[in-house]
């Protein structure tokens, strides 16, 4: 276990905010806070669909982008992130995440948080599946292929 890398306090606070955001979106707008579905909805007008929901979905996405900028402002420096895997894995990963979340009707937020919180069996199955697939993938990439 990576004791130095383990950040339980910020994880608990951040997780609490994510949960609170999910509850608020339901209380205010009556919607599941599933990011893959919201992003797909932003592109729905390309197919002439989902016009009524376009604005709030775009606003939610804008909020997601705004947040790290606000945090960087408060911190006084740009928040540092690192991408340990090569660029082609980012591209292939993006393609699989995009296609897979649409086929599987959700991602970490919609299934993993909102769905599991509603005790949806579909979301339990989806979450167990993507967690297992991701752990196996990183095991192969990091431990067998040695990236």
């Amino acid at each position: 276990m990576d004791i130095a890398g383990f950040t339980p306090v910020s994880a608990a606070i951040g997780g609490g905010l994510i949960g609170a955001a999910a509850v608020l979106l339901m209380a205010l707008n009556g919607r599941i806070a599933g990011v893959s579905g919201i992003v797909a909805g932003v592109m729905a007008p390309l197919r002439g669909e989902g016009g009524a929901d376009f604005s709030w979905r775009l606003a939610f996405v804008a909020g997601l982008v705004l947040a790290p900028l606000l945090a960087s402002l408060v911190k006084g420096e740009i928040i540092a992130i690192a991408t340990p895997h090569p660029l082609w894995m980012m591209a292939l990963g993006g393609l699989l995440v995009g296609y897979g979340t649409r086929l599987g009707s959700g991602c970490t937020s919609g299934h993993g948080v909102c769905g599991v919180a509603r005790l949806s069996t579909r979301s339990f199955a989806a979450t167990a599946t993507f967690m297992a697939a991701a752990i196996v993938t990183v095991f192969i990439v990091n431990r067998i292929l040695g990236f």
Partner: peptide, 21 residues
Amino acid sequence: PLIVGSALFGVGWGLAGLCPG
């Protein structure tokens, strides 16, 4: 579709270390 889609998503999540949000 739920299981296949979630499995594909998981592989992509592991490759990139990123999910949509």
